[in-house]
Design a protein around this nucleic acid. Structure first.
Lengths: 132, 132
DNA sequence: CTGTATCCTTGTTGATACTG
DNA sequence: CAGTATCAACAAGGATACAG
């Protein structure tokens, strides 16, 4: 517990963007997963969430705080230190997140195959609707 | 089965917009629920999904078709008739959707309460961050 | 009836730079 | 370190009108 976050834990090339089920917005689920092992600091979170700007990360964290999913604790030190931690309500998202992962494991491949097939067919015949 | 869709089945005033879990985009989950009892026609779907423009409904249905969630069947009649029906893959979304509903039943009230409280506090003291 | 075409508004995301 | 400020780019959603 509380090992450093893996910079590779969210691969931009993974097909999660195809997921029909989303937790909040683009970054919310990543934050929740990052906080699974305990409190994390602002800059710790930036490591695996590559490409996120501080503005967007702040927006995401503020939204989670507003909804009672995370707490924000400021330690009045120099340099400043801020820790984000999941509340019980935030941890209650693990259930749905696990359900999403289970769905993905069972069906994401079917989805991707259907999508490729559809794109092939519509590419060669733009009016390719099925008739009865 | 196959009773007319209730025009009130999606109340715009309900707090589902607060849900941290989403199925696809704004309209996707509604379509899936509408198709739960069997095939539906384009204009049938427009009834409960009040305010959706034909363009957006078409986009939603095309995306679902592309992902193998629904089939689109054209009956070459006059006037034209088109039916949309869930595939097995589409029906597999019922599990996650049920999980979302269960989460909402258990926790949505907590979320709404946290949100109201947060908004009250930040309204009176814009710098109201917790200290340690 | 079942869409398409066009235009527009709005919100979200991001890049960049700067502050306590 | 932990953000905020500002601006730019884009995409989603919607209004309206029209077509096969």
């Amino acid at each position: 517990m509380k090992e450093p976050l893996d910079p590779e834990m969210f691969d931009p090339a993974c097909p999660s963007s195809a997921m029909p089920i989303r937790i909040g917005d683009k970054w919310t689920a990543m934050v929740v997963v990052c906080l699974e092992e305990g409190p994390r600091r602002f800059s710790e979170l930036r490591v695996p969430m590559r490409g996120v700007t501080p503005k967007v990360l702040t927006q995401t964290l503020r939204a989670l705080e507003r909804d009672g999913m995370v707490t924000r604790t400021v330690y009045p030190e120099i340099p400043p230190r801020v820790e984000y931690e999941l509340t019980e309500l935030g941890r209650s998202l693990f259930g749905p997140i696990a359900a999403c992962r289970a769905w993905a494991a069972a069906h994401l491949e079917d989805l991707m195959r259907a999508r490729e097939e559809y794109d092939e067919i519509t590419a060669e015949s733009p009016g390719g609707a099925q008739l009865a």
